[in-house]
Design a protein around this nucleic acid. Structure first.
Lengths: 184, 184
DNA sequence: GATGTCATGTAATAAGTTACATGATTTG
DNA sequence: CAAATCATGTAACTTATTACATGACATC
């Protein structure tokens, strides 16, 4: 279960389920996502399995919180997973499914609008990631920041490629529409 | 449910569950995947809902087959979905999760090997997609082939970017290893 | 006769989403 | 005092994977 390994990875330092959710949204949202209602039971399972230990602490703000700490067994499980082959082939792009079948509607104007919307959505994501990446230095990073920077770069490069693809596609659709218009 | 809409899209022409699985693997694997054990119940549900009709036919080869045909209601449901906003934010890259936490192992050689493996896996996918894309003409396509070509292009462009990212990353890790070696 | 492809399904389990339920503290 | 944030969980449901079960026909 990939979520569990991501939680193990995030639990480098002890944290609550709530804090992990925040980290997820801030640092991992470009490659994975999870809801609180999935995180809490997962942490529970992991503790039963011996990968985590938890203690209940009073909070300075709000109710009591359950703080999870990664055990040695948890670390071992994580490292074992990290040494497996790169996991590929689970890619999911729902918007490509929409685009590919949109030809059946036979209305280039619909596709044009779709691609323009998609361009905006993707470039907003790109801007977010770029600003995080640019806020980091690139040289003399410690090994953990170096890894964080590597994965940010992949987000930046692949989103840039997709935005360029949107632009290219918009031009091609415009050209088709111009031809159609000329024919009438 | 996205799978159901993809099945509707594929069912432009009547087909069996088995044939849809083949189409999935050949034409849709770079943006979605599904197992037969998920496809059969889905088709069943969709027929109950009135999106499909099925008939049982004898096969020239192997056992009887259930051929599904998309109904007008199914087409309407598909077109309605196609006109919704582009679905983004479901991206999942398990290999990025591996990479980002790999810093905790503190062994650049592990990361180097990982990136080299990833490069091979991604470039194999890229070659597959490129050859399909190159086998298509680019001008004067009918509207459906045009859409197929658009989505192939996204695969080619974004995979190229990722392969370049692997190369860039491999160089950076090599540089770190060289530095480390120099220090010893 | 073994292996591969065609063909359809069910059962059990795992993973993920939406909705429900509760309640304290902080900030405007 | 209303809204936001902090905080934890359960219940119901949907979606997806793995394993099981069956069997015809084709090719080597």
């Amino acid at each position: 279960m990939i979520l569990e390994y991501i939680l193990l990875g995030l639990l480098r330092e002890p944290a609550t389920g709530y804090a992990l959710k925040t980290e997820f949204d801030e640092g991992a949202s470009h490659f994975w996502s999870a809801k609180l209602s999935q995180i809490y039971p997962a942490l529970n399972r992991m503790e039963k399995r011996g990968w985590l230990k938890s203690t209940v602490e009073a909070s300075d703000k709000g109710p009591e919180r359950r703080v999870y700490t990664r055990t040695k067994a948890g670390e071992k499980a994580l490292f074992r997973w990290l040494r497996t082959e790169p996991i590929v082939g689970m890619e999911r792009f729902a918007y490509l499914a929409q685009l590919i079948f949109m030809g059946q509607i036979e209305d280039p104007a619909t596709t044009l609008q779709f691609m323009k919307q998609l361009r905006e959505l993707l470039s907003a994501k790109l801007n977010l990631l770029s600003s995080v990446a640019e806020g980091m230095k690139t040289d003399d990073l410690n090994i953990e920041d170096f890894h964080a920077h590597l994965s940010l770069r992949m987000g930046v490069l692949s989103l840039s490629a997709k935005v360029r693809w949107c632009d290219e596609s918009i031009k091609r659709i415009d050209a088709r529409l111009a031809k159609e218009g000329a024919r009438v």
